[in-house]
Design a binder for these strands. Structure first.
Lengths: 195, 195
DNA sequence: GAAATGACCGAATTGTTATTTTGGTCAGTC
DNA sequence: GACTGACCAAAATAACAATTCGGTCATTTC
């Protein structure tokens, strides 16, 4: 526990870093900046984090935790697998896109391709695939869907969802939530085979 | 018809351009270079093509034609839809990857992101989706697969194939041709639903 | 006189050097 | 011994010079 007279330096640093990364991106955040925001000497940061990258990783882990909370809150055990999956994808990706940190990092990758920012976002994607994979495995064990490789299936599902919501495919106007759900069920769950 | 004493300037220019774009990429190809390769004054190029972009488009259309020929040659009407689709995707994408022009342009987009090169490759992708879409429509009318939006379905299929062959998904080693076919059929044609 | 040419032009790119900024350290303070 | 900020080498940026490139057009060629 922290007493009144001994402010928690680590917390100050971490919160300042989260703020700065979200506002200015990875490259735009300087250690001097973080120290000033945290009202802390620059050297103090290096007491808790070996370098800028480690500090960034801590912040990204925070984002990933937030996303898992959102996902778990969305999950409704009484719904069928496909509906749950779609709801989670919708909510999580929407949350991610609106989250200042993720949004800033995406822009940074697009505009200047900062490698660290790219790796950070990839870590988020891996976490998401892992989360889906666990639920795919569960659903497959429960007999809700056919047996399959959970990791690969989760990866494919994410890619399909992204393809469906990708407005880059010019010939189609962006699909609404219900349309996306219907198409996702059609392509991924039911399949194109005649039955 | 061209007589011996009046060489076909347009052909000279077009062939020189094809060679140069394939060897040096869009940015690396200069109009002076093309003129010299074609043994033609630079001004002559502008008699046939309004600018560099138009010349490039002509060359890209040639590539797209080549790809269609490859696709048509691969097509075997006596095979089921899924097999034909996989064979075409395999052959066409393999041909494309080995084609000097396409390979050079991909590298150029990766390394320096030349917008014109990117647009050129997107045109190839659109042509491929269009080609698949026509065959999806046909298969759906013949009752080989369920009714669906051909364009969207073609787009989804391409994305799924690319996801399956993408060795970027680190947790899996690159899949062999037979594995890709099996997984493609599993995810896209049959679906995950219990039957 | 139509077809073909290449010297020429401004814009854009590239090369070069000077200046500033940044991640990280560490001697010293409290 | 927790904490600080002046300090350093390396990397990023700015400023400027030099070159290259797409496109034009007056002139030449046939």
């Amino acid at each position: 526990m922290q007493e009144r007279r001994t402010p928690d330096r680590r917390k100050q640093v971490t919160e300042a870093a989260a703020l700065s990364f979200a506002r200015f991106g990875y490259k735009g955040t300087t250690m001097d900046q973080v120290a000033k925001l945290a009202r802390v000497g620059k050297g103090t940061i290096y007491t808790f984090y070996a370098n800028k990258e480690e500090l960034f990783d801590e912040i990204m882990n925070g984002l990933i935790c937030d996303l898992r909370v959102v996902a778990d809150e969305t999950l409704n055990p009484s719904l069928p697998f496909a509906d749950n999956l779609m709801n989670v994808l919708h909510r999580v990706l929407d949350y991610r896109d609106r989250h200042a940190l993720a949004a800033k990092l995406s822009q940074e990758v697009r505009d200047i391709g900062t490698p660290h920012a790219k790796q950070g976002l990839e870590a988020v994607e891996r976490a998401l695939v892992g989360y889906i994979a666990r639920h795919v495995k569960e659903a497959s064990e429960k007999g809700e869907i056919r047996a399959c490789d959970p990791e690969l299936t989760a990866y494919m599902m994410l890619k399909m969802y992204l393809a469906l919501t990708d407005d880059n495919h010019h010939s189609h106007p962006p699909l609404g939530k219900e349309e996306v759900l219907a198409h996702f069920r059609f392509y991924c769950i039911e399949g194109l085979a005649i039955r």
